[in-house]
Design a binder for these strands. Sequence first.
DNA 1: GCTAATTACGGGACCCGTAATAATT
DNA 2: AATTATTACGGGTCCCGTAATTAGC
Lengths: 128, 128
Amino acid sequence: MDTRRLAAFIKVVDVGSVTRAASLLHIAQPALSQQMVALEGEFRQKLLIRSPRGVSLTPAGRALYHHAHIMLRQEAEARRSVSQPGLVVSGEVCVGLAPSSSATSLALPLLRKVRVSGVRTYGTKKVH
Amino acid sequence: MDTRRLAAFIKVVDVGSVTRAASLLHIAQPALSQQMVALEGEFRQKLLIRSPRGVSLTPAGRALYHHAHIMLRQEAEARRSVSQPGLVVSGEVCVGLAPSSSATSLALPLLRKVRVSGVRTYGTKKVH
DNA sequence: GCTAATTACGGGACCCGTAATAATT
DNA sequence: AATTATTACGGGTCCCGTAATTAGC
């Protein structure tokens, strides 16, 4: 999956037209049209509803549109942190909760369930 | 930025060797070596330290390695939600806080500062 | 000298732009 | 007829695999 294609897809959706998006992206319309076809082939799903008045999204297209934004932001962040390694904070975050408080009984099961990478939960442990 | 390249990069780093990674990815070693060179060209940064015993990461490479994992997970999630639109929850989340409580005075400035996409904060407003 | 990486090079796939075609209002 | 999108096709670039070369232990 190429972020360039995702950016093109987003532009097409935002302006609602392959023609205008191509003009804004400084590429020819057929090229952009092919990119959209290729994108649909990659996901094996129709993403755009074509009409002589422009394009609109299918449900699958809407889903991709959402994730495309996220991935493009991730890409930007990756470029920043790679071009200036050391500027970005990194390491571990450790969260401690007072035992037997309502926070513990609520947050601990929540943390265990939440789908985030690298989350580790430990049982109760006294800290002196 | 192509996620395929990122996956290849991750594999190279994980096994610490271009040769073995190429074997695991079922591509020829020079092809993979070229991909890594291309990746370094794309970021204008040396990412790998080559030695006759394998490869290791530069600081920039470490940064990319971290973000590559995130982007690949995003890609997987995108594929899931696109291939089965409707299964994934979507929409807006609205958080309301009782006015003049400690939660408001703490959470509101926090939300304004937090770097998350699409977060909008509004002032106090009575809800009947 | 052995291991692992890189360059050299030829074939195939992909991307783009121009030109021509189809479809809907 | 006008607007928008698609197919057709030729040229350039990128990707891969095989073969030959370089670099460090």
